[in-house]
Simulated assay, not measured.
Amino acid sequence: MPSRSSQQRARQAETAETAASLPSVAGALWPSLRDEAAQAAGERLLAPLMHQAILDRDGFDDSLAQLLGRKLGDAMIAPAAIAALAAETYRTEPDILEAGAADLRAVRERDPAAPDLATALLYFKGFQALQAHRVAHRLWVQHRRSLALHLQSRVSEIFGLDIHPAARIGRRVLIDHGTGIVIGETAVVDDDVSLLQGVTLGGTGKLTGDRHPKIRRGVLIGAGATVLGNIEIGEGAKIGAGSIVLEDVHPYTTVVGNPARVVGTRHVGMPALTMDQSLPPIDYMI
Score class of each variant (00 low, 15 high):
246 L>Q: 03
210 D>P: 08
274 T>A: 10
192 D>I: 11
223 A>C: 11
28 A>L: 11
68 L>Q: 06
269 G>C: 08
52 Q>W: 09
2 P>V: 13
61 D>H: 07
251 P>C: 07
98 E>N: 09
84 A>M: 09
139 L>A: 05
72 L>T: 03
152 Q>A: 11
202 G>Q: 04
206 K>E: 11
143 H>K: 15
137 H>E: 03
85 L>A: 04
145 R>C: 06
145 R>P: 01
150 H>T: 14
97 L>F: 00
161 L>I: 09
93 E>Q: 14
24 S>N: 05
128 Q>E: 13
100 G>R: 01
74 D>P: 06
35 D>W: 04
51 H>K: 15
30 W>A: 05
190 D>F: 09
89 T>G: 04
199 V>Y: 03
147 L>I: 04
236 G>Q: 02
120 A>S: 15
243 S>Q: 02
124 F>R: 06
165 P>K: 02
166 A>D: 00
271 P>S: 06
200 T>C: 05
103 D>K: 07
187 A>P: 03
203 G>H: 01
107 V>S: 04
117 L>I: 08
213 P>Q: 03
63 S>T: 12
165 P>G: 04
165 P>N: 06
275 M>S: 09
132 A>I: 10
13 A>N: 09
53 A>C: 11
209 G>A: 10
270 M>K: 11
271 P>W: 01
268 V>E: 15
151 L>D: 01
74 D>C: 11
193 V>T: 05
222 G>P: 03
119 T>K: 11
39 Q>N: 11
174 L>S: 06
60 F>V: 08
234 G>S: 05
211 R>L: 02
153 S>C: 13
281 P>L: 08
94 P>A: 05
36 E>W: 09
190 D>P: 03
281 P>C: 10
